[in-house]
C-alpha cells in the first residue's frame, strides 16, 4: 500500500498555502509533516482526508480496497475531538465504532488508552488529556489503514505520549500508514516532510 501526493497545491481564502508538493508513504511508514505555523500542515491533512479540495495535483492510495475512496480508508484525528459531553465515554466510543462499521470491543479499546475506569462516566468530566486519549481509542475501535493525525500529542502528558507511541508502532507493524502534523517528536521512527520556507 502506498499513499502518495503529486504536485499538490492548496489555495485557501484566495491565498496559496503551498504548491507543487510531492510526498509518499508506504505501508509501515510514518511521515511527520513539520514546518512553521501557517505552512499548511493542517490543510494538507484535510486535503488527504477529503475535507478540502486540492487546487491542483492528485492524492491517492495505491493497493488499498479498490471500491473505497481514500477518505473512507482513513482516520482523521483533528484538533477538535468529536466527543459529546452529554454522552458517556462508552457511548461516545461505541457510536464512532458503529458508525465506522468496527467490531472491536469497547472495553478493550478504552483499557488500551487507560480509560477503563471511566467507561460509564459522562465525557464532560474528562480532562483535556483524557479526551485526547478517548479520541485515540477511536483509532483502535475501527480499523483503517491510513491515520491522519493533527498534533496528536498535544494535551498528552509524558505517559500518554509513550502510550500513544506504542499505539502508533503497533499500527505501523500491522502495515498501516501514518501522516502526522507535529511540532514535537512522536517517539517513533518517522521520515520528515518539511513544509513552508525552503520547500
Amino acid at each position: 500500500m502506498r499513499l502518495s501526493g503529486r504536485h499538490v497545491s492548496c489555495i485557501r481564502g484566495g491565498r496559496e498555502v503551498f504548491s507543487g508538493l510531492d510526498f509518499e508513504a508506504d505501508s509501515g511508514q510514518a511521515l511527520a509533516v513539520v514546518g512553521p505555523n501557517g505552512s499548511g500542515k493542517t490543510s494538507l491533512l484535510r486535503l488527504v482526508a477529503g475535507l478540502l479540495a486540492p487546487a491542483g495535483g492528485s492524492i491517492g492510495l495505491d493497493g488499498g480496497a479498490a471500491e473505497l475512496t481514500l477518505p473512507e480508508q482513513a482516520h482523521y484525528l483533528g484538533h477538535r475531538d468529536a466527543l459529546k459531553p452529554a454522552l458517556s465515554v462508552a457511548e461516545n466510543l461505541s457510536f464512532w465504532r458503529d458508525f465506522g462499521g468496527g467490531i472491536e470491543d469497547i472495553g478493550q479499546c478504552l483499557a488500551a488508552v487507560r480509560l477503563g475506569h471511566a467507561t460509564h462516566l459522562p465525557a464532560a468530566y474528562l480532562s483535556a488529556g483524557q479526551r485526547r486519549r478517548l479520541s485515540i481509542a477511536r483509532l483502535l475501535a475501527v480499523r483503517r489503514p491510513v491515520w491522519l493525525l493533527d498534533e496528536p500529542t498535544s494535551a498528552l502528558d509524558a505517559a500518554g505520549q509513550d502510550l500513544f507511541a506504542g499505539v502508533m508502532r503497533d499500527h505501523l507493524e500491522d502495515g498501516g500508514i501514518i501522516l502526522a502534523a507535529t511540532h514535537t517528536p512522536l517517539g517513533i521512527a518517522t521520515r520528515e516532510l518539511r513544509m513552508g520556507g525552503a520547500a
Binding site: 477529503g50 477518505p71 477538535r80
Partner: peptide, 14 residues
C-alpha cells in the same frame, strides 16, 4: 461542526 464530528461523518463510509 463545532466539535469536529461533522468532519468524521463526511469522511465516513456511509
Amino acid at each position: 461542526h463545532e466539535d469536529g464530528s461533522l468532519d468524521l461523518i463526511v469522511m465516513g463510509r456511509t
